[in-house]
Design a protein around this nucleic acid. Sequence first.
DNA 1: TTCAATTTTAAGTGAATCTTAAGTCTTTAC
DNA 2: GTAAAGACTTAAGATTCACTTAAAATTGAA
Lengths: 222, 222
Amino acid sequence: MRILIVEDEPGIYNFLKQGLEEESYAVDIAEEGKKGLKMALSGEYDLLLLDWMVPGISGIEICRQFRQEFKQTPVIFLTAKDTLDETIFGLQTGANDYIKKPFHFEELLERIRVQLRPKSGEHSIFKLGNITLNTATYQVFKGDEEISLTQKEFALLEHLLRNKGMVCRRSRIIESVWDIHFDYNTGVIDVFINALRKKLKLGKDENYIQTVRGVGYIAKEI
Amino acid sequence: MRILIVEDEPGIYNFLKQGLEEESYAVDIAEEGKKGLKMALSGEYDLLLLDWMVPGISGIEICRQFRQEFKQTPVIFLTAKDTLDETIFGLQTGANDYIKKPFHFEELLERIRVQLRPKSGEHSIFKLGNITLNTATYQVFKGDEEISLTQKEFALLEHLLRNKGMVCRRSRIIESVWDIHFDYNTGVIDVFINALRKKLKLGKDENYIQTVRGVGYIAKEI
DNA sequence: TTCAATTTTAAGTGAATCTTAAGTCTTTAC
DNA sequence: GTAAAGACTTAAGATTCACTTAAAATTGAA
């Protein structure tokens, strides 16, 4: 899941970026309104976090123009305490939710989940054969055995499981997991797929993560 | 745990009642606002589920009057999709959360658990291996030996133990223990983890507090 | 205010993780 | 059957992040 943050204060966006990345969202930042709108319109994001006051175009204007293009991507506003009445106006321009600064990260996360739920499926637990991945506790089990994964391994497996039964293109994987959206003629994915299959001890009879030659990978029940 | 539902549609409250009772909550229903408020004020409930639109007094009014009596019981609103902006006012009147109809029962359950957590976690003794933490007496023992911890050390250990078996992300820790909701690219957590491990004399064979690189820490039995 | 204890900041070090790269193997196309 | 392309595997190099320590700042009590 990709999130765009339009926010000019480094203190805030760094906090958000790190926190959200720990939850394995891919996060991009725009420090300025015009750029933010352009990035938002690219269609690469699953959710927008807009600060109310950013240099350039205001958050509300970004939202309005964004919705004018019939984009459905959920929008959450980050607003200062004293602009509440305007905020409600903001919701009328098509935002989905708002959150007051200072806020608890936990609360923001919950609201993000609410917005993404219809797409991402509501459970934080994903299953594939006897493999279980729990995004809440950051744990992976194969049967009863806990498998210790690194960040990237976890993010990759999560991506595959979120899209269980569907082919995940390499380009999409590199975008979602590595947050790279340009050239990607690199072998990282292969290396990490290899690591996953090893750690999960996927034998011939447990070919849960299959290669789709020329395209990517697919996680599916056998 | 007792839950009061104020809701007039039998279809909804029966669904909720049955589901919640299966989760072993005790559930009462009020079909009408005035009665709902009276029951709520009785103080018998651990949580209120208020429909936004009930006959008699509105949900928001119930909540306002309820809070006026300095009642701390958590309140969750059930709201229709199109009343989101009003809902936000609802949160300001002292509600703890809201959920949009139609919602998934799982999601409601999750939010209920979030609200009840602080109370249900009142078991004041937490154990991890031969380590015991008592929130009532503010003491920590390792075996028979009492370990003297500072405030922050205690709070951190408590957080880890409350979430035993789950990975605690740095962002959550910094929120829960330090109450910081913004920038936190700081090394405090590391320093205190270090202090804990030292004071608790966790050797190689007693690796109760494990680090999850890039994410946080996990306290677990070995 | 002063002093001691606690908390936070900062910086150097080392280890785990990530990335790159190169050689090997497998599949596909001709 | 052979060549080419893509995937697998491995290991080394680069990087990031946590550990550790000490010093600075803050807090609280005398």
